[in-house]
Write a protein that binds this DNA or RNA. Structure first.
Lengths: 143, 143
DNA sequence: ATTCTTGCAAACGGTTTGCACATAC
DNA sequence: GTATGTGCAAACCGTTTGCAAGAAT
């Protein structure tokens, strides 16, 4: 996560990309969100202040931020991609019913280094830990 | 993973589902595959012996097997769902370029019990560990 | 002035759905 | 004979793409 929008602007400039109003508000919406929103969630959020922004722009900006390593997509088993501006090491718990996602933090983030044979020749760039379960609200509902 | 197709038939009967030719060959195709195929991969495989099977049936059967806990969907960040008949605890390495998936086994499969505050009230049903990287073939290609 | 970016709308692709016919039991 | 499952095709929906108009530098 970039600490401030000024830092985002710095990264964009440094890489030769323009600093646009849309990129700033999209990044801010994700940074201020705590519930791992989808592209459409972000779109609905930013539309409140910029009613003519397009969903396509949201997708293009999110893809760019991800390529720059500023945000991550969260791994779920479901149809819709979810995003997270928090790049510190942490896991996720996903509700199998409503797909709500919560963060899991550890005092010491777990590490699972792989040995040579486990790597199968891959270069490893990252690791994620992911729990599946049911959130408190969905546990109360009838099946 | 169910050891044999006879066991699959047993599970289906026990739950009140019919044992059909299609379900048997779909499960077998997945069980015998080592590369975490997509629904369409499985469809192309079973079509070789049963040319009039439909892709819809493949999807419906896979969903049923997943609900019965006989197979799992593999967590990738990409558009297409991938399936695995191996239900023993293991992780996956996914190539960010070609999306090839390899298994990761440990002598002692890692466990990460969560404490009360980490669970956020969720009931936890499972955990998965997931590496992102680049496979040997894609490392050789130019970007 | 030039390059990059946006908004729009159509296209795309994996998945789901509805239903008449077929199959398992 | 009845309930369940299949094949087919259309619908669905999140995402991507192409391009003319607009904004950033």
């Amino acid at each position: 996560m970039v600490d401030t929008l000024e830092t985002l602007a710095g990264v964009l400039k440094e890489k030769g990309f323009n600093v646009t109003h849309q990129r700033l508000i999209i990044y801010r919406a994700l940074m201020e969100s705590k519930d791992h929103p989808s592209a459409e969630d972000i779109y609905n959020q930013v539309r409140q202040t910029d009613p003519i922004i397009s969903l396509g722009t949201v997708y293009k900006s999110l893809e760019m931020f991800e390529n720059l390593g500023l945000i991550q997509r969260v791994n779920t088993l479901y149809h819709t991609a979810r995003y997270d501006a928090d790049m510190s090491p942490h896991g996720h718990i996903v509700c199998r019913k409503c797909e709500r996602i919560m963060d899991v933090f550890w005092k010491e983030p777990p590490e699972f280094p792989l040995n040579k044979s486990q790597k199968h020749g891959y270069r490893i760039d990252g690791m994620s830990i992911h729990y599946v379960g049911m959130c408190p609200e969905c546990q109360k509902k009838k099946p």
